[in-house]
Design a protein around this nucleic acid. Sequence first.
DNA 1: GCAGATAATTGAGAATGTCAATAGTATTTT
DNA 2: AAAATACTATTGACATTCTCAATTATCTGC
Lengths: 154, 154
Amino acid sequence: MSIEQADIPATAQQSGSDLDDDLNFLLARAAAVSIAAANRALRAYGLKARSYSVLALASTDKPASQKDIADFLRLDPSQVVALVDELESHALVERVSDPRDRRAKVVVATSEGRKVARAATAATRRAETRLHSQFSPGERAELMAYLRMLAFPT
Amino acid sequence: MSIEQADIPATAQQSGSDLDDDLNFLLARAAAVSIAAANRALRAYGLKARSYSVLALASTDKPASQKDIADFLRLDPSQVVALVDELESHALVERVSDPRDRRAKVVVATSEGRKVARAATAATRRAETRLHSQFSPGERAELMAYLRMLAFPT
DNA sequence: GCAGATAATTGAGAATGTCAATAGTATTTT
DNA sequence: AAAATACTATTGACATTCTCAATTATCTGC
């Protein structure tokens, strides 16, 4: 991972910060690892982490508008258009225009969509078992609580 | 965030999984929030999270080869080429070919690079204070330990 | 009813990610 | 020691994703 002290120029002393202790970096790498694993598991369903997230939201009993989805997933609204387009082209979701606000379109999973969502959820859970089973249930809950604080800052 | 039960088609019952409990999703969102904050803080130094990471690694007293950097940051080697090119064009790092393995190039920060790295580190720390100060030192350590387990699976 | 905000959409351009091919150097095999 | 194999950095092509600005339809407050 690195060469010996003797071989490096004298200019390269003194560390600015250790990336190992950088919360930013650790979050980014952990997310990358986790998403890569999820994508592998989701490929069998023609989904990726993103489209799966949208499908999961659409499979809820309180489906969200595209704006809601964009905010929740921190995506540009135009990206949501593309994701919903794709899911819709596979008949996994439908755009239902909200009677209360006819500008808004609520994204609702079809019954096929919900079936796929359930299977995909199970698949990712299975794939992540190895990664997540390092944690006890209590630790896992703790970790998720921390992450929620970071993911949804007040 | 969502419409009432009464307004949604009958097909949309039964949740597949709650994204709120999805470690994947929480990691991705937390990382996105964190990186966005870091990027805002780093803009003043002409850096982004990526280039900052490379510069930080180059500022260590055990600098890494581009391959090492690619592995550590989970990047394609060609992306590292571009990142180092850019840092080098600003005279923040140098490519030093490793005498032990002349294929490898060790990326070493210049003294200017180390100066920038220190300032940038301080800036991101400051920017993240609000976000991270929700945690006690103990909690923070715990969180980082969890993240390390996820980021560097055995 | 009008003026200003908001939701979805489109399209453009930048930034990132992924892959295959190449040149030079190490390492392993015979 | 020559040949075969593997590895590092690099380039270039291409796909995916991000970020913005502009447009249309609709909503809200006045």
